[in-house]
């Protein structure tokens, strides 16, 4: 099948065209608003049509997202959106399929579907809104909450080691893995644009503030005054360097791990040059482990962007090859493919 979005000229749209008539019902001040706004603003620039775009979600605050997009959409059940998206993307390679999910939806109840969708390289773009808390059920700890987190369900503190969503995605060898945050619309839009452009499974973690149940979880790194020294922008082909004066960088240790260094101490040549296209996910995995939580300098941007053939395309190729080899399906011949006999 050909890519319809490329072969048919797409009508010019504005952000308004991509907004549905439904009232947005997130809590005032929720980080989801800025993500929705970034997506709706980006869509007219992508050169795609509304009728060929589908937003799928599971359950959670983030999962209301499809209702607000004037596209095709489905608000499904908890954790299952990647599974549903797999069937849709595998049968409809002409569509742009987005999956909107949260930390509970994607990493707890839906963990299994997430890793397998990534492993299979299904042609979907996954936006994971990570707020490190369960919002819709009113404030229990999530699989990305920090150890000792005190919540409604952990009055004595959480005992669980959190998932690192990027490490998980890279462990599943996702072809496209990136991180952005809800305080920087431009960065979000650029990251989403890249994720959309990637053929196959794309995974974007978005640090998203839940101002009701986990307010300020990322403030230490995403706050306007903190960003320069706490966010490490990853730029392909460039030395990894950050800080208000560019005084910090990232270097590799002898054991292959990476660490934050002072440029003045190690020298510019010692800095790691970022390469999104490394086939081996090892280095990007190390970068995903650089920060232990949103209180240390944390890389954002595209960690990995490697092209492999996407799943639905491969399915189509098998069908084409079988049809080529045997001719189009002949039902009468199928019925007689075992031993058949005639009674006269």
């Amino acid at each position: 099948m050909t890519d319809v979005s490329e072969s048919v000229p797409v009508a010019l749209t504005t952000r308004k065209d991509w907004s549905s008539d439904q009232e947005v019902r997130w809590c005032p001040g929720c980080g989801d608003y800025s993500i929705l706004s970034a997506v709706q603003t980006l869509m007219p620039d992508l050169g795609v049509s509304r009728e060929s775009t589908v937003f799928l979600s599971g359950i959670g605050c983030a999962a209301r997202f499809p209702y607000y997009m004037n596209t095709y959409g489905m608000h499904s059940i908890h954790g299952r959106a990647p599974a549903i998206a797999t069937g849709l993307a595998a049968t409809r390679p002409d569509l742009d399929v987005w999956v909107v999910t949260g930390d509970g939806d994607a990493l707890s109840i839906g963990g299994n579907h997430l890793i397998h969708a990534l492993r299979r390289n299904v042609n979907i773009t996954i936006l994971l809104f990570n707020n490190q808390i369960y919002g819709l059920t009113k404030g229990q700890y999530s699989p990305t909450s920090e150890v000792a987190k005190v919540t409604k369900s952990t009055p004595f503190g959480s005992l669980e080691q959190p998932f690192n969503p990027l490490s998980l995605a890279l462990g599943a060898e996702a072809g496209f893995v990136a991180r952005t945050h809800d305080m920087d619309r431009k960065h979000m839009m650029e990251t989403f644009r890249r994720a959309h452009a990637h053929k196959g499974a794309s995974f974007v973690e978005i640090y998203q503030n839940c101002n009701v149940f986990n307010d300020g979880a990322f403030e230490k790194i995403t706050g306007k005054d903190n960003r320069a020294d706490m966010l490490i922008p990853l730029v392909h082909g460039e030395a990894i360097r950050f800080g208000s004066e560019g005084q910090f960088g990232v270097a590799m240790n002898r054991d292959g791990s990476v660490e934050v260094v002072e440029v003045a101490t190690v020298g510019e040549d010692a800095l790691l040059v970022h390469d999104e296209h490394l086939e081996n996910p090892g280095l990007s995995f190390q970068l995903s482990r650089l920060s232990r939580g949103p209180y240390e300098p944390t890389p954002i941007g595209v960690f990995r962007d490697v092209d492999h053939e996407e799943y639905g395309q491969q399915m189509t190729e098998q069908i084409d090859a079988a049809t080529e080899r045997r001719g189009p399906g002949d039902f009468a011949a199928l019925l007689r493919s075992g031993s058949s006999w005639t009674v006269s």
């Binding site: 549903i84 069937g87 397998h116 189009p328």
Partner: peptide
């Protein structure tokens, strides 16, 4: 029998099997 345009998907679990089938149905299969 892929020459009939049949797509078969061996999912990661029973839930994903029916989920993908429902996704395909949403897409008109």
């Amino acid at each position: 029998h892929k020459q009939f345009g049949v797509r078969t998907f061996q999912a990661e679990d029973e839930i994903s099997g029916i989920g993908a089938a429902l996704g395909a149905a949403f897409g008109g299969a």
